[in-house]
Structures are given as C-alpha cells and as structure tokens.
Design a protein around this nucleic acid. Structure first.
Lengths: 209, 209
DNA sequence: GCTATTCTTTAGCGAACGATAAAAATTATC
DNA sequence: GATAATTTTTATCGTTCGCTAAAGAATAGC
C-alpha cells in the first residue's frame, strides 16, 4: 500500500554505531551518519526521527550485539570465574588492539551523554547494571562452587569489577598500554582467588599472561 | 609601550575551566567561553591562540589547582593509607554532591579528547600518571610503616586504584549513588589492610562511612 | 489504470560554528 | 603631543550544523 524502504535498517544502524563509536554523539554530524548509512538525510529522519533517537536505537543495538552477546558467550563456558576474567581480559585485549582508541560505546556514552540527557542516562545506567549483574551472578556461582572465598561481598565485589572495567576503558583512551591495563585488572581479579596461602586446586585461576 | 590587558588571565582561565568542565571541549563554543570569561571573541584569540590552546591552558591550570592541590593536601596528613583513602573518598563525596554531574575535568578529557589529539593525549596521560605516582608513593610508604602487606605489588596496586578512581568518575556520570560508588572503592581500599585475620593496630583503617 | 500511501530525492532553511580583518582605544616612550 | 605597540571592539567571513518543505518515485488496493 506504499513504497517500501530501500535500505536495510539493521545495516544502517550498524553504520550509525560505527559513527557514534568513533566520534561520539555531539561530534558526529547527521551528514556523516547519512553518508555512512548509505541514505539521504531526510530518509534518516523519516526512518529514525532525529539524531538523538537514532543514537538511542544504535546504543540499544550495541548493547544487544556487543555487551549481551559477550556476557552470554562467556557464561556459556560454565566456569563463573573464567567468565569474569575473560570478560575483563577481553576488554583489555580490544583496548590494546584498537588503533583508533574507540573504546566501548557504552562507556563513552556514560561519560559524554549521560549527564546531559535524562532518558538516555536511565538507559545507560541500566546497561551498566546488566554488567554489574553479570559480575555478581558469577561471583555468587564461584562462591557456591567453592572457587571464591565466601568472605567477599557479592554486591561490592561486582561493583568493584564494574569500576575496574570502566577505568580500564577510560585509561585506554589515553594510554592503551597492556602492562598498565593488566596492572589495573590483576589485583582485582586476584581477589576472586582469595589471599595467597589459602589457594587450593579449586580456587586457583590459571596464570594470566 | 602598549595597551595593557584589561582582564585577569587567571580569572578568565577559571571561567574557561568552568565551561569545559560542564560541557567538554567540542560542545563548548567560543562564544560561550568569551561570555563567561567576560571578554570578546577576538580578545580570547589574541590572548590564547585558539580554542584548543585555551583548553590546554585550562587543563594545565586545573591539574595544578585541583589535582595537585589535593595530592599535596592529603599527603600533608603524613599517613599514607589515609592519604589514599581520603583521595578516593573525596572523589566519591564530590560525585555524590554534584547535581550537574560535571565529574572530573581530567577524566572527562581523557575520554573525550585524548583519542583525537596526540599532543593533548600525551599531557593527559602524564596527568593520570601523576595520580598513579601518588598512589604508588603512598602504598610504598604504608608498606614501609608496616600498615600494608608487603605482598601487594606497588605498581599494580597503584594502577588498580587509578582504575578504580576513573571508574568511579565514569559511573557517577550515569548513576552518582553513594552505595554504588563506595561499593566500588571498598574492596580496593580493603586490599591495603590485607586479608581479614591479619589485621593489627598498625594496618587497620578506621571504619569507612 | 487510478488512487492513496509511503519513501526518496532535491534543494535549502535559519542558526550556530571557529576564526579574522579592520578600525577604534589605550598605554609607554620620546 | 606625536609615534609605536598592543588590546579591544565592531562587523563580519565562509562553513557546517540539525532539520525540513516540496516534489518525484515506487508500491498495494481497487
């Protein structure tokens, strides 16, 4: 009953993600977006509303395709401590091998966008909370499996790991040095093993390289 | 031998700091800056060069008047562990009582500016390194005083604390909740006391509120 | 094939951007 | 008071910004 859309909305969203990821929300122009998405400006407005709404859509897609995908993938390993360590180590690996220093779109948005936009802030806080919940869930599982000391507070340790993750992402924007980033992560991940001298075959992680 | 400047350069820089702190580098216009600095656009260009050069000057002044001032003030307490804890706790306090969520200009700049500007990135990395050096210096002093376990790696623990600080600052932009931010800091600061059960009158910190 | 509906394209709106040329104003030196 | 040097002011420059009106193109229902 009407002219069909001539472009793939998901592919267009992926192009928008790439734009926002590289330059952020404010510094990305609608013209840049339209060009990378392979459409004209008015088509963008027709399909997505305005730049901010497109950003919200892009961020939601990023959360699903990147953050949630990783959480699900690492949890399928069925080793909660490995899931946590792999998640952090994966962020370090990506930071070190990221010549344009794009970092994480979610972290970038938490800093650039959250303070100035109440609606997006709520969504961003919810995404961050999903990461904290992932950490907490796996800390609890590690404790239940006797791999991590019961003395660790689940909520606070999860918060620590979230803070460490964000810190790594920020630090990497200025200085993506592996020794530095692994230095940040090391003592936090070591907490999961408990104090030296209490380690058994159950709670010792493999050597981190 | 020439017309003298009619404005105070430091007061103008303070106004520029306020602008960049609230909205970042890109989102702050030269017109905003000139107005808040109480001068006309061309006077700004005459005195500081361009927007980027003004930003560099503002950031350097911020580093001295805010970051270095706090480091010096907390180190004058002559208790290395208290200096570290107070630094982190101070950042939390400021984050919680910050209705505009301005955060820390240095952290904001590390994320917004560092990836896109090599010169500023070098400076920002150096500022962050000053913070890491503060942490390391005081960890070493705490160990020398028998207040902190020798088993802690000085460099990595300092890096962890830097990461935690940055993480707190980012997290606060989206969700400046005291329980959340203190949850991030708590397990990291507890590391300085060593494992529960090994604590003596020398290594026990006061209760954190 | 006509109509109704939606999308795409062309063209451009007014506003804000970073930056500057040129003139007026203010000082020190002589 | 004249001169030279610097700052301040006024008035823009050309560009880019987010966004949109209007016209043309493509589809489904009849």
């Amino acid at each position: 009953m009407a002219r069909p859309r001539s472009f793939d909305e998901d592919k267009a969203l992926d192009a928008a993600i790439a734009c926002f990821w590289s330059r952020g929300l404010e510094a990305t122009s609608v013209r840049d977006l339209a060009e990378r998405m392979g459409i004209q400006g008015p088509s963008l407005y027709n399909a997505f509303g305005d730049k901010r709404a497109l950003f919200a859509r892009a961020l939601e897609r990023y959360a699903t395709r990147t953050m949630r995908e990783r959480i699900a993938r690492f949890e399928r390993l069925n080793d909660p401590k490995v899931a946590i360590c792999t998640f952090i180590q994966d962020a370090i690996e990506r930071s070190v091998c990221d010549p344009h220093r794009r970092g994480c779109l979610l972290v970038n948005s938490a800093l650039e966008v959250a303070p100035h936009d109440k609606q997006l802030r709520t969504r961003i806080a919810a995404y961050l909370d999903e990461i904290a919940a992932f950490f907490r869930r796996n800390i609890a599982a590690a404790q239940a499996a006797g791999m991590t000391p019961e003395t660790l507070d689940q909520a606070d340790t999860a918060r620590l790991l979230l803070g460490v993750l964000l810190g790594i992402r920020v630090l990497a924007r200025a200085n993506p040095d592996r020794a530095l980033l692994e230095g940040v992560a090391g003592p936090a991940l070591a907490l999961l093993d408990g104090p030296a001298g209490t380690r058994t075959s159950k709670n010792r992680r493999g050597k981190r390289t």
